[in-house]
Structures are given as C-alpha cells and as structure tokens.
C-alpha cells in the first residue's frame, strides 16, 4: 500500500502550499509513490490516519493547538513546511507586543470573538520529524526529504550557512555590493537563491545550529546598522529563536 500523505495549514499565507501546487511535473511523479488523502486546498477527501502529515503555518490560536495535537496523534511522520511552521515565521513578530494589543489592532471591537496565542513553531507543541525551511518553502528540500522518507533513509539536514552556497555559485558577496546580508548565519539549502539574483539574504530559512549571534551583530554593525537595527533584521524570521 502506498503511504498516505495529508497536507494541513495553520497560521500563514498558504504560500508554501501554493508553491507546492506549482511543481506539477514533480508532483505527478511523486503520486506514483504516495496517496494524497487530505488537502484542503486541493481536494475534499478526509482520512483518519496518515503516514506523512505535511503541516504549514504557525500555531497561534487555541483551536490550532487542539488541531495540531490531533494531527500528530494520527500521523506517523510529521513534516513542518515553511518558515511559519518551522520557526514561527513572520507571524512570530507579533509576540513582542501584548496579546491584547495585537487583538485590538487586528479585530477591533470584534476582538472577543477571536482568541489568540503567541505565534509559535509547531515544535513548541508537538514532535516534528523533518523540516522544510524557507519562505516560501524550498522546493528541492521538500523533494529531497520526501524521496528520502520513501526510500526509508534519514534526510540530510543542511547545517551550513547560505555563504557556502553563495561561494559555490561564485556570487559576488552582497557586502561587496554595499548591502547587508544575513547569509553568514542563515541556514543554507536554498542554493543561495536570492543572492544568485542580486538580492540580499533576509534569513527566511532560519539560523544555523549554534549560531554566533554576537559575531553576526558585529558584522552588521561594521556595515552600518546600529545594534538595534541589526537585531530587528535578525528577528524578522527568527523571533522565536532562543539564540537571539
């Protein structure tokens, strides 16, 4: 029997899922090996048990908490998909304000109808087996993880910084173009997509393991950002990272 795969979304822009619908050729090839049993964005079917649950978005309401526990209980393998699911994403920036204030701002006089919680990565509530990082999620990483699981192998998690891929691609360093870049401390695996196209790295894939935040702040500072500005830059996708 083919593994049963389900796709779920929580708090996020659903860009990761849509991104996934954008690679039809690869999806068709994958469908040879899996059965997609649940996917709100693409189909109506439901199932009770999943071999692989692919979960997008952060956890930000009491309802989310209940649902994610339920999904975890019914899944053998859980994959967090995209920056919101893995790191809390941009949503987590709301966590720096009092929750009441955030509710008021967004829902105004209807705020009582919408209970809210700090936006957190899935891993703060349930065990996450694998991570597909990026905003939107990195397609190649997604395919590599899925093929590894289907082969019964442990996927290799990239641990190097974006700088490595930037050098392998022989890009001119963003700093030498007069911009600042979060590549030195951001987890690679994206094949330095943004810097390949002349952009700087915003850090969407989160920080490397054991990041040296002090050294990174010093680099940003040396290139003209105040320490406060530098911290803000790092927080964009890493607000919930304990290293910051």
């Amino acid at each position: 029997m083919k593994p049963k795969v389900a796709v779920f979304d929580f708090t996020g822009c659903e860009g990761c899922e849509l991104n996934k619908l954008n690679f039809e050729d690869e999806l068709l090839a994958l469908l040879e090996h899996i059965d997609i049993v649940e996917w709100r964005e693409a189909m109506d079917d439901k199932s009770d048990h999943y071999t692989i649950a692919i979960v997008e978005g952060s956890i930000s309401t009491p309802d989310c908490v209940e649902r994610i526990h339920d999904i975890r209980n019914r899944s053998e393998i859980l994959i967090a998909l995209g920056a919101c699911a893995v790191q809390g994403g941009m949503n987590a920036m709301k966590n720096q304000y009092p929750l009441e204030q955030v509710r008021e701002e967004v829902y105004g006089c209807h705020k009582d109808l919408f209970p809210t919680l700090p936006a957190l990565p899935l891993s703060r509530y349930v065990r996450v087996d694998y991570e597909v990082r990026g905003c939107p999620m990195t397609k190649n990483e997604f395919l590599k993880i899925l093929t590894s699981i289907l082969m019964g192998k442990k996927p290799i998690k990239p641990t190097h910084a974006v700088c490595v891929e930037c050098k392998l691609n022989e890009n001119e360093c963003v700093y030498d173009k007069g911009m600042v870049c979060l590549g030195p401390i951001t987890r690679g695996g994206c094949d330095s997509l943004c810097t390949n196209f002349g952009q700087y790295c915003t850090g969407c894939r989160g920080l490397v393991d054991e990041p040296d935040v002090e050294a990174m702040l010093a680099i940003l500072n040396r290139h003209g950002l105040s320490i406060v500005e530098a911290k803000k830059r790092l927080e964009l996708f890493n607000y919930e990272n304990q290293a910051l």
Partner: peptide, 13 residues
C-alpha cells in the same frame, strides 16, 4: 575565533 561567524567563506574561496 570570537569575531568569526563560522560561515566557511575562507575555505571555499
């Protein structure tokens, strides 16, 4: 090492 961010650039170039 205190200043180094561990990016690996020095090796790769």
């Amino acid at each position: 090492a205190e200043k180094c961010v561990g990016c690996g650039t020095c090796n790769l170039v």
